[in-house]
């Protein structure tokens, strides 16, 4: 596969390490109500879509960017590649 890195252009997937569902960005509040349940879901509950999937890839043999790659799990077509940091900021994550 080839991942079109937003900063570096097209790179072979062999340069990356796969992590999984991009919802891992959305870490719950440790002081929130029902935090244990929230963390349980955050850590273990996943959709398994046949189709578009947003997932985290780490450019380990490159610039160490974490990327959010939107990939069609049926065709491996890559629809979108974003810097995970930008995605996290847009989700309101900060400090």
């Amino acid at each position: 596969m080839i991942i079109d890195h937003p900063l570096l252009g097209p790179r072979d997937a062999a340069e990356f390490v796969y992590l999984g569902d991009a919802r891992l960005i959305d870490r719950p509040d440790w002081q929130g109500e029902d935090a244990a349940r929230q963390f349980h879901d955050y850590l273990h509950v996943r959709d398994n879509p046949a189709g578009e999937h947003r997932e985290l890839w780490f450019h380990e043999h490159g610039d160490r960017s974490w990327l959010v790659v939107t990939r069609n799990t049926l065709t491996h077509e890559i629809i979108r590649v974003e810097l995970a940091r930008d995605v996290a900021l847009s989700l309101g994550r900060s400090r």
Partner: peptide
């Protein structure tokens, strides 16, 4: 740690 820095607390 890079994950935590870029994805969890990008404002640090």
């Amino acid at each position: 740690m890079e994950f935590a820095r870029q994805c969890l607390w990008p404002g640090l």
